[in-house]
Design a protein around this nucleic acid. Structure first.
Lengths: 226, 226
DNA sequence: TAGATTGTTAATCGATTAACAATC
DNA sequence: TAGATTGTTAATCGATTAACAATC
C-alpha cells in the first residue's frame, strides 16, 4: 500500500543480507534458522534481526525459530523481489555489463532489457544478450518497452542529463552509480544513489588508522583529534 | 595515529561526496564553497556538513566559507587518499574489470596491480593492462608485490575461501563485493562488505510503496502495517 | 516440565537538527 | 557596520541494545 508504517532504510538494507544468508543455509539442507544463528553469521545483534524481520510480517515460532522457506518468501515479497521489473541501463561500460548479470542474480525479478550509450562503436552491439541502443532514442524505446527503472552507469558528468532523459521518458525510479548525487526534485521520483567511493572512504580510513604511516611522525600528528 | 577520536562511519561515507562535489564546483571555476552550497547540492543538512568537515581538521572562514583546494586536500589526506595503495583483485569478471578503472578514478592512489581467477581461460590474459594470475599462486605474487588490499569479486560461494587465502598471503584489508558477509575473526583484519543487493532492496521497496500493485487488492493488503 | 526461542517494552546510545555566539 | 558564514552547544530524534514476559 502507498503508505504503511515508515520502515527504516537501515532495516531495508539489512533484509537482503538475511535473505542471502537464509539461501546459503538452505543450500546446506537446513529448513529452519533462528535470530541467534543469523546474528552469529552476519555480525548483527539478534534483537536487531528480530525487529527487522518483524516489519516483513514474518512470525516465527518460539523454541523453533523461522522456517527458512517462509521467511525468504516474506522478505522477497516485502522488498518487491517477487515481481518482475524491467530496467534500462545507460552507460554500457564494464560496470553496466557487470550489473546486467548481477541484478537478476540477486533478485529473480529485475532484468535489464536494453542498454544505451552515445558512443557509435557501442551502439548496435549486443552485450550479454542485451542490445545497445543510441541514447538519443531512449524515449522511443521506453514507449515500446515500458521499463520501470533506469540505471545510470555513465561518467559522473553525464549523470544529471541522463537522469533528466530517463524521467522525460516516463521512468520514475533511478539507480545511480556515479559519484554525482542525484537529488529528486519532483515528488514521485525515486532515486537510489549508490556511490562505491563511500565504501572506499571507510575502508581506506580504517586502513590508515591501523597503520597510519610508513615513515615520519609529522604528518601523523595532523590526524590526532585533540 | 592508531586511535584518535572515533569517527562515525556515516561521516566517513559522506566525506567522499563532499570531495566529489567540490571537484565538480572547481570544474566550474569556483574557488570557494560553503556548507550551505554543499547542502543544497547534496541534499544534506548544512550543520551535518559542518560537523563532518570538522573531523578532517578543515577550518573555514566566517563570511567566506571554505577554499575548495584546501578542503579537498584535507579530505583526501584524512581518508588516506593521498597515499598509494596497491590492491589484488580476485574474480576477474565484469565487476572486477569495472573496478580496475573505477578505484583509480575515484582516488588517485588506489590501483589494482594483479587480477586472480581460477578459470584456465582467464589465467594469463591481460585485462585493462593488468595481468590475470592463477589464484593458486596468490601467496607467491603477494610476496613479490606486497599489496595492502584484497578485493573480492568472486561468486558469493567463493568469498570465504578467497578471504582466507588473501589473509594467509598477508593482506590485512578486504573489500568484499559478494552478498556473503565476511565477519572479521581476528583483530587487525579490516573488512568492508559492499553488497549491491542492499541498495536494490531499498530501491524496490520504495518503488513498491509508490505503486504497490498493477492488479488486485488482495496482495496489497498484506503490506498494510497495522 | 524445562529450556530455548520469539516478540515487545524500556533503556541506552548515537546521529541529526536547532539555536546561537563568534567572526570576518 | 551589517550580514553571512563558521563552529559549537543543547535539544531532538531515531536506532540499537537490554530486559523480560509469552510460548511451544
Amino acid at each position: 500500500m502507498p503508505n504503511g508504517k515508515p520502515v527504516s532504510e537501515l532495516t531495508l538494507r539489512r533484509l537482503p543480507l538475511y535473505l542471502f544468508e537464509m539461501r546459503r543455509l538452505k543450500g546446506f539442507g537446513n529448513d529452519v534458522t533462528s535470530a541467534a544463528e543469523l546474528a552469529r553469521n552476519l555480525g548483527i545483534h539478534h534483537t536487531q534481526i528480530r525487529k527487522d524481520l518483524a516489519v516483513t510480517g514474518i512470525v516465527g515460532r518460539a523454541k523453533v525459530g523461522h522456517i527458512i522457506d517462509e521467511a525468504m518468501a516474506a522478505i522477497e515479497r516485502f522488498l518487491g523481489w517477487d515481481r518482475t521489473l524491467d530496467a534500462f541501463l545507460v552507460g554500457a561500460g564494464n560496470l553496466g555489463s557487470a550489473l546486467a548479470g548481477y541484478a537478476e542474480l540477486v533478485n529473480g525479478g529485475t532484468q535489464i532489457v536494453a542498454l544505451f550509450d552515445d558512443h557509435p562503436q557501442k551502439i548496435g552491439r549486443v552485450i550479454h544478450g542485451i542490445p545497445v541502443f543510441d541514447v538519443a532514442d531512449l524515449s522511443y524505446h521506453a514507449l515500446r518497452l515500458q521499463p520501470s527503472l533506469g540505471i545510470i552507469t555513465t561518467p559522473a558528468k553525464a549523470a544529471k542529463i541522463t537522469c533528466d532523459r530517463l524521467v522525460e521518458a516516463g521512468i520514475r525510479a533511478i539507480w545511480n552509480f556515479t559519484p554525482y548525487q542525484i537529488i529528486p526534485e519532483k515528488d514521485g521520483l525515486i532515486v537510489e544513489n549508490t556511490c562505491l567511493c563511500s565504501s572506499l572512504g571507510v575502508l581506506t580510513w580504517n586502513m590508515n588508522r591501523a597503520a597510519p604511516l610508513t615513515g615520519g611522525l609529522m604528518e601523523s600528528k595532523s590526524l590526532i583529534q585533540e
